[in-house]
């Protein structure tokens, strides 16, 4: 099948050589296929290899092995062809010239990315309106907030109206308002309206769950699972999750006696610690878990929920999405 707007990876490998014998297999034999118009998510913790994969696809890195076809062009044989099809959002707000204004930035990138002169003005106008940045068009980028910079980066990515988009951590470090705007924009505008083919990476499971039609779990350079969010959650042997929200420090050692009953997922967010046990019978574990937590921390609430993608990720990889697996 000739895919002119899809992405296809076969056994892609990228190894970084460190000092002496040390090496990092940042992308380690990855294969998958993204269909035209699909919104595909790559979910994995820091250091999983998501950015490296994106750089291989955007011809900024040369893979060591395997093949990648982007928009019908091979990244090794026809890098220029690949780049014509692609919009890449990476590096976030730093991918702009901070001393220049949004209009100056977009003008430059429009010319560089081959937007005909006659269409440039209209295109920039459209993008600024679309990203709600029209009032700020003559303000220097350095004076814009992080959220606005990220919106402008997205406008920059779209300047030449590419059919395929690679979006690396679009909401990293943004406040909830802008994160919401950008997620909605990706889903309704880019995916539903404009029907772009999108590869999005994130280490926020909510983001992947909410946006993506299919999700690949990436961990240590490998794809650990690939499916729709719904079917991924079905992979949990346990149907329910007992969650204890508390304040204080807890480590997994404390729960060593409970391993046989279910999968433990410990995480911290906004100063709270969340203890999540995936299990068949939350009621049976309730008193035991609360006991352990109460010994070391103050319990705020206890609830029973269904598994999240995070629980599935922990179940399948043994690592949390909040871990930092970067190898120095």
């Amino acid at each position: 099948m000739l895919q002119t707007r899809g992405i296809e990876l076969k056994n892609l490998v990228k190894v970084f050589k460190k000092k002496k014998k040390d090496e990092v297999r940042a992308v380690d034999g990855v294969s998958f296929r993204i269909a035209e118009g699909e919104l595909f998510g790559l979910l994995g913790p820091n250091g999983a290899g998501k950015t490296t994969l994106i750089k291989c696809l955007s011809t900024l890195l040369i893979p060591d092995d395997g093949t990648a076809i982007v928009g019908g062009c091979d990244v090794n044989a026809d890098p220029l062809g690949v780049r014509r099809k692609l919009g890449v959002l990476t590096g976030g707000e730093r991918s702009l010239y901070w001393k220049l204004t949004p209009v100056e930035n977009l003008n430059y990138f429009a010319a560089l990315y081959g937007v005909p002169r006659s269409e440039t003005k209209e295109r920039i106008h459209y993008l600024l309106e679309l990203m709600d940045l029209f009032d700020k068009k003559h303000e220097r980028v350095e004076r814009l907030s992080s959220g606005m910079k990220q919106k402008l980066s997205i406008a920059r990515t779209l300047v030449h109206d590419p059919p395929i988009l690679l979006i690396d951590e679009p909401t990293l470090g943004l406040d909830p308002y802008f994160a919401r705007f950008i997620r909605t924009f990706i889903k309704t505008e880019l995916h539903e309206q404009l029907k772009k083919t999108i590869l999005l990476t994130t280490h926020y499971m909510d983001e992947a769950d909410e946006l993506c039609e299919r999700i690949a779990f990436m961990y240590n350079g490998k794809i650990k699972a690939l499916d729709t969010p719904h079917l991924l959650k079905k992979r949990m042997p346990q149907e329910q999750v007992l969650e204890v929200k508390c304040v204080g420090d807890i480590d997994d050692q404390a729960f060593s006696s409970m391993h046989e009953y279910g999968t433990l997922n410990l995480s911290k967010q906004d100063g709270f610690t969340y203890v999540r046990m995936s299990t068949e019978n939350p009621e049976d574990l309730l008193s035991g878990v609360v006991e352990i937590v109460r010994d070391r921390a103050r319990v705020l609430s206890v609830s029973v929920t269904s598994p999240t993608l995070e629980d599935v990720f922990v179940h399948l990889t043994g690592a949390s999405l909040k871990d930092d697996t970067t190898q120095q």
Partner: peptide, 12 residues
């Protein structure tokens, strides 16, 4: 600046 990737990913 951090712009090199974006410049080098351009179709030129």
């Amino acid at each position: 600046y951090g712009t090199l990737d974006t410049v080098f990913a351009a179709p030129v």
